[in-house]
Amino acid sequence: METQNIYLPYLMQIDKVSEDAPFVKTFRLKFINPEDEANFSFQTGQFGEYSVAGVGESTFCIASSPTRKGYIECTFRKAGRVTTALSDLEEGNTIGFRGPYGNVFPIDEWKGKNLLFIAGGIALPPMRSVIWNCLDLRENFKDITILYGAKSVADLVYKHELREWDERPDVKLVTTVDPGGETHDWTGEVGFVPTILDKMAPKAENTIAIVCGPPIMIKYTFPILEKCGFADEMVYTTLENRMKCGFGKCGRCNVGKTYVCKDGPVFSLKQLKQMPDEY
């Protein structure tokens, strides 16, 4: 479609729906217009505005890897008005998508390094994009470690993929659930993500840590990484703030003078420390 209207979404068809956890769904989306697909590209870390006509738009990251062509995926928890409406949709429905927006994980700079992914709860989706991106370019990186925690076993998202990562000899996966969230046959760790991370005592040398999770998890994870010797510029995270436009105009997502939609969502801990506490 020939347009210069930056608010006009691509039309996407829901190709596949999977239920990843209670209230959490993943959509595989395909472009309805082949021209849109041909012109579209994104990089890992970027986000978009997903919309249900008549209900509105909602912001979340692209959860699939740019190395997987022909579709994008998004994972969301049924929480607000738009995600509730999205949740009610099924395969074959059409939704809108605007994007990609924002900056990217600098994976080119990570070549030859170890990668340590630390994620909590529903924050695995933004991480999933970069994990698959790196796994698809596996020879570029040294050791890859994934620490993922959720409230309970049921709340762990992408269970198939966790199994796949677990079975791969070139990935070390550690999963954990909050105390009380384990089942009788749970073989993973029990404890909060920062606690398990502390126990793992990852080595900082030549290692990039990527942290995504709820604010409380992030807050307690950074000091542990610091203790392990990670320099601030070796630690990355993604921020979420309320957004409407995605391109620096609607005025909500800024943290001080930093616009999460344009300057982020990906930030190094070094950048984060220079920003005011407004996120």
């Binding site: 919309s51 006509a53 008549g54 738009e57 409407k244 436009c245 609607c250 005025g251 909500r252």
Partner: peptide, 21 residues
């Protein structure tokens, strides 16, 4: 210039609106 983006629809037809916030 801060704004909100909202949908307004009636039946199957509607529009997306940018409105002041």
């Amino acid at each position: 210039a801060c704004f909100d983006i909202q949908d307004e629809s009636h039946g199957g037809k509607g529009h997306r609106v940018r409105c002041w916030d």
